[in-house]
Amino acid sequence: MGEQKLFFEDIKEGDSGPSRTHKLTRTDLVRYAGASGDYNPMHHDEIAAQAAGQPSVFGHGMFTMGLLGSAIEDYVGVANLKRYKVRFSRQTWPDEELTTKVVVAKKRNVDGKSLVDLDVRVVNQDGEEKVVGEATAELPSRS
């Protein structure tokens, strides 16, 4: 099913998908809160966040996973995605520049399926990791 963005034969281990860079704003956090229903005040209420000892509001981990998901989707197509997992390693802060990284870790054939394992992560402008994970896509084959 779906978008034939890429064939299994077109990629090799070590290849990178298109990267996305985005400077995080408070507006991103408000929109994500509304779209996801996650109204934890730590993500939109500066006064409450500072009262809780945080320097400011901080991003939803799931926003960062979503941004990274959009980069993975750009590369392999949403219908080809079979599995996507991340660990949330550090908080994200307004004005940080978040960059997605999607790298082909392994190509494999399992039961006639052409699978691609991806190393995926989001880092800030200093290279600090925010989320780190892995994804697997099943790609169409030319053969």
């Binding site: 099913m1 779906g2 978008e3 034939q4 996305r20 985005h22 991103d28 929109r31 994500y32 509304g34 779209a35 996801s36 926003f63 979503g66 941004l67 998901g69 959009s70 989707e73 750009d74 197509g77 949403v78 219908a79």
Partner: peptide
């Protein structure tokens, strides 16, 4: 579509059913 906007998806398949169908969905 609103959720796709909120995670900064930029593909038209999240907005327009005709674009989704063109992509085979």
């Amino acid at each position: 579509s609103f959720f796709a906007d909120a995670v900064l998806e930029n593909s038209p398949i999240y907005k327009d059913p005709n674009e989704a169908r063109k992509a085979g969905l």
